[in-house]
Design a protein around this nucleic acid. Structure first.
Lengths: 220, 220
DNA sequence: CCAATAATTATACGGTCGTATAATAATTAA
DNA sequence: TTAATTATTATACGACCGTATAATTATTGG
């Protein structure tokens, strides 16, 4: 018996997600969103009351799937070092492939958005624990040198996370070339599977025992 | 014969630099800056005309001090590998010490703040070039393995940049502990000079020639 | 002391933004 | 057809921000 809804709430959310990709959630402009969605400005108050509630819903829909998508299921068989390598490569590939999303998350984290914060706080540790466990096991087995985790972990995490972020940021800023080299080429060299694996091997080789210095396992 | 200046321009710049550290340039509020400086709002227009001109000056003064430090520490004499190590350590210390500001700048970059973007685009390459030059020289001299720069550079840059960023972000989010370990302790282990040097040595050792595997130079 | 000059203050203009609300439109059960 | 209910529109309020300006203050050479 009421007037039927035209799902303006969903239209607004989707328009916002589009705009978010280029500008970030922090500088989302409600009038702009409404215009893009072809929906009246007043619908924000009708559906969501406040901007915070609205952005919460936008972020919810954006990040929900993203975080569930990635699970570090390390294969239980093989050497522990090989397992660690596999986990790091998987993490690296995921980071590189979803680099734009990572940058967006970073952006939202810096804006102290509560929704994103909750996601990050619950999801990052989960993956971290897997890596930590494997590193410890390797250290006990002697395949990695004994070093404090506070040194090892940031080092390992940085090997692929930072290249992915740097690349994503350059793309974000639409930088055309670095040192006269086209970004496209650099992107390939940074984001290729081989490059990701190489960086992991590079990092692991640095952590191996000093006595038996050798290349860490190569090839896929 | 005129009324003497109370250097309100400088007071404003310094107040802004303080505020910038916590929130970044992009969300700098002129009324807030004026209040912190104890200077009248109108002085902005008197001294700088526009906000953009003001933030440009703020950034300039902030950066100039940094660059002086960097060039000083990375141009000492000795082996090329030692120079590279010095430059990386200087950069690392710099990144770790000013991690809060780095995060703020990152925030501004993501917000596509025009002033900050101009700055980053013109100044970051300068630091990169120094490192690139040293890496190449090391590779020619044989103290580093020959590898494509596109692999080496992100790897080297990541060793200290990411730990610094991770730490700063955790502080930013007021995370109290990681894996039951107080953040203060972790901060010390990540940000100490020794830790910074260790990470550089770790990274460099991974890049050394495979035949003559040895620890990269230690000590300060 | 006075005129000239530069620095500082108080205040407001115009714009943008999130929010709010009264009026109106569309639908269906009765 | 009408009453009831929900959705949508047009519009405005109030706060904030960068910018602008007229008035006021402090200083010094003549």
């Amino acid at each position: 018996m009421p007037r039927p809804s035209q799902n303006t709430d969903q239209q607004l959310v989707e328009a916002a997600r589009d705009l978010m990709r280029s500008a970030g959630i922090s500088q989302l402009n409600l009038r702009q969103v409404a215009k893009k969605a072809g929906v009246n400005l007043g619908m924000f108050h009708y559906h969501f009351k406040t901007k915070e509630a609205f952005t919460r819903r936008v972020l919810q829909e954006t990040y929900d799937k993203f975080f569930q998508e990635f699970t570090l299921e390390s294969s239980k068989d093989g050497e522990t070092l090989g397992q660690l390598r596999g986990a790091l490569v998987a993490l690296g590939k995921f980071a590189v492939r979803n680099r734009r999303m990572f940058l967006a998350i970073l952006h939202d984290v810096l804006n102290k958005d509560k929704v994103v914060l909750d996601f990050v706080k619950t999801n990052i540790p989960r993956h971290g624990e897997v890596i930590v466990g494997l590193v410890r096991k390797c250290q006990k087995e002697g395949s990695l040198r004994k070093m404090p985790l506070s040194s090892v972990m940031p080092f390992l995490m940085g090997t692929n996370a930072l290249p992915a972020m740097m690349l994503s940021m350059m793309e974000h800023l639409e930088i055309k070339r670095v040192r006269f080299i086209p970004l496209k080429l650099i992107a390939f060299e940074i984001a290729s599977e081989k490059a990701i694996e190489n960086r992991v091997d590079l990092a692991l080789s640095a952590l191996r025992p000093l006595t038996i210095q050798s290349k860490s396992r190569r090839g896929r």
